[in-house]
């Protein structure tokens, strides 16, 4: 697959977007690709915490600063090396977790968001063309919010994460039909935290697909609910701690599918 920008999105919170986005980025990095991961969830930022050891809590500029015009593209991207090797090409953009910053971003109007979308396109172009990044992944806010729609608009492909919870499935169905169809984005569905038995009888999986009521979108994978993942308590870099875990195997399969999409 050519250089691609993915957004990981969902209709509701708690579907596992961040753990999927982080480990997907790691899986691609491990394969030798140049990767960038951007925290576009300004209401509940989490990447600063995931990479707290790697950054030594020394984030100088946040994506909030970039969108507010307080820093440039080069300053907002933090290069992290040494995760798999010293040659890692991994660029992260963090969202500011302070209450002040969250409140500030929530109070922005439509005109700010127009400028933010223009800047996001410039950031995308810089990552793909200047830094030669192969894959950019946006970890977005759930639901229909400016920051997440901006991220989806400027991405090439969307990974919509849903659990097998009926409320979640209904929310995903509405979002796909009323939102994704409008923006004509290449979209795949990822069912996460599925009941463990879901992979055994295929009719369970097919039932969810029929509930989503869409033949347009491919279900790229079904990841069962794993207690170890739930118990990881914010230690999202599972690929480093438990590389042979079935969850990581699933993520690796998804990475391979996306590369060959």
């Amino acid at each position: 697959m050519a250089k691609t920008v993915f957004s990981v999105h969902s209709s509701r919170g708690g579907t596992g977007k961040t753990v999927i986005a982080v480990n997907l980025a790691m899986a691609l990095l491990k394969k030798g690709y140049s990767v960038s991961l951007l925290d576009m969830d300004f209401r509940a930022p989490s990447l600063f915490y995931v990479f707290r050891e790697e950054t030594k809590n020394q984030v100088k500029f946040w994506l909030n600063d970039f969108f507010n015009g307080r820093c440039g593209i080069k300053q907002v991207l933090m290069k992290i090396s040494g995760i798999f090797s010293d040659d890692d090409n991994f660029y992260v953009g963090f969202a500011n977790p302070s209450l002040y910053a969250i409140r500030d971003m929530m109070g922005k109007g439509a005109l700010f968001e127009v400028s933010a979308l223009k800047k996001l396109y410039r950031l995308r172009s810089f990552l793909l063309n200047k830094l030669n990044v192969d894959y950019v992944i946006y970890d977005t806010s759930p639901g229909i919010q400016y920051s997440s729609i901006n991220a989806i608009t400027s991405s090439d492909m969307c990974i919509v994460v849903s659990t097998s919870n009926p409320v979640d499935i209904e929310g995903t169905r509405i979002m796909l039909s009323e939102f994704y169809e409008v923006f004509e984005k290449k979209t795949v569905i990822l069912i996460n935290k599925a009941f463990p038995e879901i992979d055994l009888p295929n009719f369970e999986r097919n039932k969810i697909i029929s509930q989503l009521n869409t033949k347009k979108y491919e279900v790229i994978s079904t990841i069962p609910c794993f207690c170890n993942v739930l118990r990881s308590k914010g230690d999202y870099l599972l690929i480093l701690k438990t590389p042979d875990h079935p969850f990581i195997k699933k993520i690796d399969e998804i990475a391979n599918k996306l590369i060959n999409f």
Binding site: A110, L111, E113, V114, L117, Y146, I149, N150, T153, F179, V182, F183
Partner: peptide, 10 residues
């Protein structure tokens, strides 16, 4: 005379 934000694009 307002630029198009993503919501108005809908």
């Amino acid at each position: 005379d307002l630029p198009p934000d993503v919501m108005s694009l809908l």
